[in-house]
Design a protein around this nucleic acid. Structure first.
Lengths: 349, 349
DNA sequence: CTGAAAGCGCTTACAG
DNA sequence: CTGAAAGCGCTTACAG
């Protein structure tokens, strides 16, 4: 049988109320009785029953993370950031990943109800209507990497736009006139923002150059096909910016296969800085996202909402800066100079 | 205010006891009243208060996962496997990762007490004494990838030994007389098992060949240094088996740098099948671990313990099979033939 | 400063 | 088949 607050009270010859107050650090307990109670509790290895406590305090000290079916580095780094920040605040982390559609996401969300004090939500299936239908108004939440606008929740985004701008500008600054862009999937939020960044940077820094956008879908295969298409263009582009690293890797294969030298004949850059990026030859220039920081910031944001529930949170969209990582594929030969050009971190609205 | 069982009872004109029984599927409820209650519950969007339920049932429907400070693919795949299996059983998943030492692991373990029905534990800091001190006897647990022997808990391991044996044998079968081994960190359980597998396979299939072991620590740098050492040996080894992929990648760099051709001059293989493995040139032959299955099996194992708590669980050590993946670095030129040579899956003891 | 008591929202013998 | 009641282990006004 587990030891309860009554056992501690009996041993310490006080009431359960005093045990509760002593252990929860209330001021109104003599230092002497507090000490006696603490000793007994330690000796008995007393651990308060969390369900009983939650029932009365209406707090679980747990936050939930809803994630899509995510593979690889991004997922683990995000969880790591959230976990780190959660532990620092004494919060527990309940995760639910791997839901492929809106129904599964909704079920996961509902099943967490009552088990968490707040939610961190990253899902392509989530929009304002979804949240209205599946998230009680009383449950605080922070949205990650979401296109959801004027929702009633704070949003934390990656600065895809700024990162893309910076990379395009870097390519132009390096003297590559004419930068082509391999786009991501049409419906994808990240892809759209990166596309916008490409167009904006071109408009600002190379207004006379024509835009050159080739379709893609974030897959290596799409990158390979896009690479072949670009090689067939005349004049051949001098630089290519792929909307993500996997496509850049595929594109690189196409270039190598055709005997086109990178970066001498064509410069190339990607986005994400996946682990593979530095292992292809030459190492891939790319835009890095600080995913751990994304997770950490999201949790901090949520936690501060929990601590002052009445205080209306600024329902802002916050963006987290990216940094461009210059490696071998884009001309500047210095090996992996991390040109930490801070962009974003500005709060929109 | 959240809607409680009393609200449902009032609306349905029954007692709270009947609501409880109806919603929990007890047989002793008229189909008619059950229907009425279900309707009301749905209309009111009633969700049972999990803390209240846990308090009385002494079950949380949650399992905890204790993980070390783990980066990358392994972590996310493991979580994915656990999560998939947990959701299939209606269990929630509480995770705690990122503890660098035994004290942090102990604190994490204690903080989960009372919040979970069972634990999945993967940690290099965990041994029998640690568990005795930090895990109540009453809390079921399954150990992952653990050296802990004759503990009172079931253990699920990766078949490092069998995988290493199979790869060494493959290299020998391909005609490479003399296989060198780049070892992992001394205290590491995986590394030790892989080392044993190397020695066993050599003893069995090439008993006259001398063993050739070079130190390493799982890092790319160590692999690079080991590669240089091996090149300096005379006679130069014909094949090299690195205890993990990162070292194999470093070793490959050393070989390329020295102008040594792979696989023509030296064959090379790693262990883990990290994503990078197929992107180096030539693609790396390696041993693949089905990490998702590891997570899934662990959860299944734990869940079955939870379902029949009295039934003494067979405290077995179970090993999960690996498969060797033949790519470009080890001679068999056929591009990425997955020679699915099933090894393990046998239960030891 | 301390204690007795109410109550959080459930489930489950115990009656009927 | 259904209901009244006890009780799970806490916290917190309310008295003293």
């Amino acid at each position: 049988m587990a030891v309860t607050i009554r056992d501690v009270a009996r041993e310490a010859r006080v009431s359960v109320a005093s045990v509760s107050r002593a252990l929860n650090g209330h001021a109104s307990v003599t230092e002497q009785t507090r000490g006696r109670i603490a000793d007994v509790a330690a000796r008995l290895r007393y651990v308060p029953h969390s369900a009983a406590r939650s029932l009365i305090t209406r707090r679980t000290q747990t936050i939930g993370a809803l994630l899509p079916d995510l593979y690889g580095e991004f997922f683990s780094e995000l969880i790591r950031g959230i976990d780190l920040a959660a532990r620092a605040r004494g919060l527990h982390l309940l995760v639910s990943s791997s839901h492929g559609n809106a129904n599964e996401a909704a079920a996961a969300l509902r099943s967490m109800q009552g088990r968490v004090d707040g939610m961190l939500i990253l899902s392509p299936h989530v929009d304002a209507a979804f949240l209205r239908a599946n998230l009680p108004d009383s449950l605080p939440a922070v949205l990650l990497n979401s296109a959801a606008k004027n929702a009633q929740y704070p949003v934390l985004n990656i600065d895809n736009y700024g990162g893309a701008c910076a990379m395009v500008r870097h390519l132009l600054d390096a003297g590559h006139t004419g930068v082509a862009f391999i786009a991501g999937p049409a419906g994808n939020f990240d892809a759209q923002q990166r596309d916008k960044g490409y167009r904006a940077a071109m408009a600002e820094h190379a207004p006379k150059m024509p835009l050159n956008v080739v379709d893609g879908d974030f897959s290596e295969e799409a990158g390979y096909l896009a690479g072949r298409k670009l090689l067939a263009q005349k004049p051949r582009p001098r630089a290519v910016f792929a909307a993500n690293d996997m496509m850049a890797v595929g594109c690189l294969h196409a270039f190598k296969e055709a005997g086109v030298r990178v970066p001498e004949d064509i410069a190339l850059a990607g986005f994400d800085d996946i682990p593979i990026a530095r292992y292809v030859a030459p190492p891939l220039s790319t835009v890095r996202v600080r995913i751990v920081d994304l997770g950490r910031s999201a949790l901090e944001r949520l936690a501060s909402t929990l601590e002052k529930p009445d205080q209306a949170q600024a329902l802002s969209v916050q963006t987290l800066s990216c940094e461009i990582v210059v490696r071998g594929t884009c001309g500047t030969k210095s090996n992996e100079i991390k040109a930490r050009k801070k962009i974003g971190d500005q709060s929109i609205q």
